[in-house]
């Protein structure tokens, strides 16, 4: 098969949960669905390592200030910078923007000791919303997820059942969950199962 570069491939590609169809399970007690969740398809993700100059460059290029302390994230529009470790952050950005941001950051940072790594396809982000979101997560996560303890703007890396996850509290009833793409089908299945008693809607 002779090929020419004119036949453009589908650059959107396949997301981690591309094979999983939408599904719904009603709240057995009637009333509101406890958990509405779905994949945040193609969300750009950059792993940021470094100290000197990194925060300044990220602020200048993405508009996000670095979280002031551990276990927090800082947002600017659709972009979020999540604290992962003393010298490690995760930047979430609009789909397709990651390459451009990575290039800009690489060219702006003068220190030799930094690393910007594209992990957009390495990690899968899910949006979770609903009155039962914390109860569902508590079934698999040992963190204290009480709304007074894990407030909006807080994040943490921990375990959800048998998967490593990063949790971001967006609001009292809304989270972003990040896991490895190969664990995403497991996490999706686990969430639907755990939410059975509250009802759920999974949006593909």
């Amino acid at each position: 098969m002779a090929n020419s570069s004119s036949s453009r491939p589908d650059f959107s590609g396949q997301t981690a949960l591309a094979g999983i169809a939408s599904s719904t399970s009603a709240n057995p007690d009637g009333g509101t669905i406890g958990l509405v969740f779905g994949e945040m398809a193609h969300l750009g993700k950059l792993n940021l390592r470094g100290q000197n100059g990194l925060a300044k460059a990220v602020k200048a290029i993405t508009g996000c200030t670095f979280p002031p302390k551990a276990n927090r994230f800082q947002s600017a529009g659709e972009r979020h910078v999540i604290w992962l470790a003393p010298d490690e952050y995760l930047l979430l950005c609009e789909a397709g923007k990651e390459q451009e941001l990575q290039d800009s950051l690489n060219s702006m940072i003068t220190s030799s000791h930094f690393a910007i790594t594209d992990v957009s396809d390495s990690l899968c982000a899910l949006s979770l919303r609903g009155p039962s979101v914390r109860a569902v997560l508590a079934k698999g996560c040992g963190l204290d997820l009480h709304p007074d303890q894990f407030t909006a703007g807080q994040s943490a890396q921990s375990l959800l059942a048998l998967s490593a996850v990063t949790l971001m509290a967006v609001a009292d009833d809304a989270f972003i969950l990040i896991c490895r793409t190969s664990f995403a089908p497991y996490v999706q299945r686990w969430l639907a199962d755990a939410a059975l008693e509250y009802g759920y809607q999974y949006k593909a």
């Binding site: 551990a70 276990n71 470790a85 003393p86 040992g142 963190l143 943490a156 890396q157 921990s158 375990l159």
Partner: peptide, 11 residues
């Protein structure tokens, strides 16, 4: 020392 108190399973 960085993330605060967590369960042993995380370590």
């Amino acid at each position: 020392p960085f993330c605060g108190p967590r369960d042993e399973v995380e370590f």
